[in-house]
Simulated assay, not measured.
Amino acid sequence: MKKHLLLATIQAIALVASLTSSPASVPTLPQTPTQMLRQESGWSWPTAGEPRILVPFDKPEQRWSSGHRGIDLSADQGDQIYAPNKGRVTFRSTVVDRPVIVIDHGSGFKTSLEPAESDLSVGTWVEAGSKIGTVSTGAHCSNRCLHWGVRLDGEYIDPALLIKDLRPSILLPLA
């Protein structure tokens, strides 16, 4: 809610400034509102650069229904994995056939990354962007991707929304 309010406030300030200034002196924001939210929130991709999303988030209709509770990012075995935000490692072990690492970011956010080999111990504090491991093999991502899941207060959300503004553009009238 705070992020939406901040975004709306920034957009309103930019609109008022553009309406009250002459065209030659319209102030420009150093970053887009989305970039400012991302910088403020501290979220970034868990891989180097901006990866291609191979399989998008597909929220199941019911908690027990099938779906895709995260996104699959293009990655090769051995690629570096970075903490998408600061937090504490709360789980690092093998689940069925794949190594998994979970980071609790606070404020109800938890990230899970798989298949992810890591030497970090449970309880280790990690900074946003710090190296936390490498892409391994296992499950549906073997030799092709890194699965990134994010839960907010126990409910899975689309991790890409923490990085990119995926909302449709809406044109507003000037008058």
Rank of each mutant, 00 (worst) to 15 (best):
L54H: 01
V96S: 15
T90A: 06
R98D: 00
P60W: 12
Q62T: 08
T94H: 12
P84V: 02
T94P: 11
D58A: 14
V95P: 07
A83P: 01
Q62P: 04
P99T: 03
F57H: 04
R92P: 00
S65P: 01
G67C: 03
D97S: 12
G70C: 12
L73P: 04
S93R: 13
P84D: 05
D97L: 04
V89W: 04
D104F: 03
I71C: 00
R88T: 15
R69P: 10
K59G: 05
G78L: 13
F91I: 05
S66L: 08
D76H: 13
Q77G: 08
P99R: 03
A75G: 04
D72I: 10
K59R: 09
F57K: 01
D58V: 13
A83E: 01
I81D: 06
V89M: 04
D58W: 15
V89A: 06
G67Y: 03
V102H: 03
S66K: 09
D79Y: 02
R63V: 11
R98P: 00
I101D: 00
F57V: 07
G70V: 12
S66N: 12
P84N: 06
L54P: 03
R63F: 10
H68Y: 07
Q80D: 14
F57S: 08
Y82Q: 13
F57Y: 13
S74T: 08
E61Q: 15
H68W: 07
S66T: 11
S65M: 06
W64V: 03
S65G: 01
Q62I: 07
V102F: 08
I101L: 15
R63W: 14
E61L: 14
D79A: 05
L73K: 10
P56S: 05
W64S: 05
K59M: 04
D76L: 12
R92S: 05
I81K: 14
I81Q: 09
V96R: 14
G78T: 10
V100R: 04
G87M: 04
V102A: 06
Q62H: 11
D72L: 14
E61K: 13
S93M: 08
I71M: 02
P56W: 09
S74A: 15
L54W: 01
P60V: 10
Q62G: 11
K86E: 11
F57D: 07
P60G: 12
R88P: 03
W64T: 12
R98N: 00
G67T: 06
G67K: 05
R92F: 06
S93W: 02
L73N: 01
S93Y: 04
T94I: 15
D104Y: 08
P60L: 09
D58G: 06
G78D: 15
I101C: 03
H68N: 06
V100C: 09
P60T: 07
Y82P: 07
E61S: 11
N85M: 04
I103H: 02
Q77F: 11
P99C: 04
W64M: 01
N85R: 14
S74G: 14
L54G: 00
D72H: 12
Q80M: 13
R69Q: 14
I103Q: 02
I101R: 02
V100I: 15
Q80L: 13
